[in-house]
Amino acid sequence: MDSLHAIGFYVSSGVSVAGGLGVALLPRRDMRGASLLVVAIGVAGIYLALSAGFAAAVALVCYAGVAIALAGPRYRSIDIAVGPIWRQLGAVGAAALLALLAFSAFKGAFAHATFYGGTFGTAGIGRLLFEHDALAVEAVAALILVAFAGGAAAWRARDRTR
């Protein structure tokens, strides 16, 4: 990895981690949506720096869609009935997860190999998606269809019962 890609990687990493902290800590939903958009830009930059241009484009579109969906003002706020003890345990568990993953990353320098893909890698990814792993892509497409249809049906049903 040359210096230009490394600089892009570190800048994008900072952007994405800052956006992730914003998602975790900011109080309002529009601010959280903007933070998720920042995460989308940062993650796409990381993918670009790692020579995964196609994945960067898809991730930017998908995570920007997630940010727009979560920043919208028209859905209800639902409080989760979980006590403070369990929330604090969850926060401690997240910290333990960070420590575990950071230790694993620190020990992850065992992999050294040559990268043979191109900058954008569309041909290779396309061969994988539509030839080698076509069944998995079909499964994900069915999942998306069911999720969108279920979400729209639930949205309409709740609106009708009100």
Binding site: G151, W155, D159
Partner: peptide, 14 residues
């Protein structure tokens, strides 16, 4: 994206 669409849809309209 699919998961968030389903979650927001199940949350329902304000």
């Amino acid at each position: 994206l699919a998961l968030v669409a389903l979650g927001v849809g199940m949350a329902g309209r304000e």
